[in-house]
């Protein structure tokens, strides 16, 4: 039954920092159909914010590009895919290390992937240098009560 999805949505927006709040609030609002707890919603919002910020700061740097979000609701989980056509990540393992950042001058903490990894149940990062990055995250919603 797990592969039978209940609902789906797609979102595309420009890589502007003012869209960070828009993206996390929209995904949280969509996820609310699963009746998540306040903490689960908060975990989703934080993780989406991290991935979108990464695309803006690192993927597109000073350029403006398109960020895509695809969300799929299953009976007791949400899968969120956030992708960009930015510069890509050369070394994913290094990027995932806590406190590793290529932008300390922006006071970036290097905790983005650590937060996504800890706040979500699954995290997959696919990246091709010069082509883009796709982050897929999954959160299990305990006591989900989906209303069709």
């Amino acid at each position: 039954m797990e592969n039978v999805y209940e609902n789906k949505m797609k979102l595309e927006f420009l890589s502007k920092s003012s869209n960070e709040a828009f993206a996390r609030i929209t995904v949280a609002s969509f996820a609310s159909q699963l009746d998540p707890s306040i903490e689960e919603i908060s975990d989703i919002k934080t993780s989406v914010s991290e991935a979108v910020t990464n695309s803006i700061i690192h993927g597109y740097e000073d350029k403006t590009g398109i960020i895509k979000i695809e969300c799929t609701l299953f009976s007791n989980s949400i899968e969120i895919q956030i992708s960009d056509n930015g510069k890509g990540i050369e070394n994913i393992e290094q990027a995932k290390e806590p406190l590793y950042t290529t932008k300390p001058e922006l006071e970036r903490s290097g905790m983005g992937f650590t937060i996504m990894e800890n706040f979500m149940d699954e995290l997959k990062i696919e990246s091709v240098v010069g082509v883009g990055t796709k982050v897929t995250m999954k959160k299990v919603i305990n006591n989900s009560n989906i209303s069709n």
């Binding site: 934080t46 006071e107 970036r108 905790m111 983005g112």
Partner: peptide, 13 residues
């Protein structure tokens, strides 16, 4: 009511 890792850098700074 919301803070992501940007807050970590801001606070440490």
């Amino acid at each position: 009511n919301f803070m992501d890792s940007a807050g970590i850098g801001m606070i440490l700074g």
